[in-house]
């Protein structure tokens, strides 16, 4: 095992030279270190100006997504070891405007998430004193997978469509819309349909499928989108044969 490893880190300082560049740092190598530990070593002991996000360092807060040797990953859950002998290239996630260094701008996602109405919609809300809505384990199973999304944005970074067509609602937001559509407690599918069925909704997706591959929580947004396409198409044909029924 080597004593050190080199990291080529994407640097972008909006106030300075303008164009981004790669800066090389040498950090101690340790078997148990993740890429994030190496970045922290740089930040704490070499160059305090390096900017990036991180919080839980246990793969659940979704802050530390970056591109490592071309692949979108959570840096807190990616060991240095497979990349030996290096150098390891660390860049911000693709597809997002870069604010600085490894920090991308996620406002676009937050707006889209809100547009798909990711909350329980019911015609009549029950008060807590009336007890829980019953939901069997099987009914929960129908949406559970899509509820595991941590909003880490790796799926957007892996999606070439999002990069080419930034208006696309995108994998995570659609998966979360489906999470509520498939929840037996929810009655809001029709409201969400307006957003999902427009051109920038599911129909922008050409099924590259990479979103599901890079997802660290096995959410399978690609599956969620294709299923929605099938359901929306069936609904459309049903509405043709049953007059008075809208899609």
């Amino acid at each position: 095992m080597p004593d050190t490893v080199k990291l080529e880190v994407f640097r972008y300082r909006p106030e300075g030279e303008g164009e981004p560049l790669y800066e090389t740092f040498e950090v101690p190598y340790r078997d148990e270190w993740m890429v994030l530990d190496a970045l922290n070593q740089i930040k704490d002991h070499q160059d305090g100006t390096l900017s990036y996000r991180w919080a839980c360092r246990m793969g659940v807060c979704g802050s530390c997504g970056m591109t490592v040797n071309g692949e979108p990953v959570l840096t807190c859950a990616t060991y240095l070891e497979p990349f030996l002998p290096g150098p390891i290239r660390v860049e911000p996630l693709h597809g997002f405007p870069v604010i600085r260094d490894l920090v991308g701008d996620l406002e676009d996602f937050v707006g889209k998430l809100q547009r798909v109405k990711p909350w329980i919609i019911r015609e009549e809300e029950r008060s807590p004193s009336e007890g829980e809505y019953l939901q069997t384990p099987e009914e929960m199973d129908a949406y559970k997978r899509y509820s595991m999304c941590i909003n880490c944005m790796l799926c957007y970074a892996a999606c070439p469509i999002y990069e080419l067509e930034p208006g696309f609602i995108g994998p995570a937001a659609i998966a979360l819309a489906q999470r509520y559509n498939l929840d037996s407690r929810d009655e809001g599918a029709r409201e969400r349909h307006e957003v999902l069925a427009e051109h920038e909704g599911v129909w922008s997706c050409t099924f590259v499928g990479e979103c599901s591959i890079v997802c660290p929580k096995d959410v399978d947004p690609a599956g969620a989108i294709q299923r929605y396409k099938v359901d929306a198409t069936l609904d459309f044909f049903r509405s043709l044969v049953t007059p008075g029924r809208s899609p």
Partner: peptide, 23 residues
Amino acid sequence: APEEMLRLEHWGCPWGRNPDGRI
């Protein structure tokens, strides 16, 4: 506590369930 937790259930929290659908 119970009321707050039920409210969260109504907002969609996927609490673990018994086979009969109860919490």
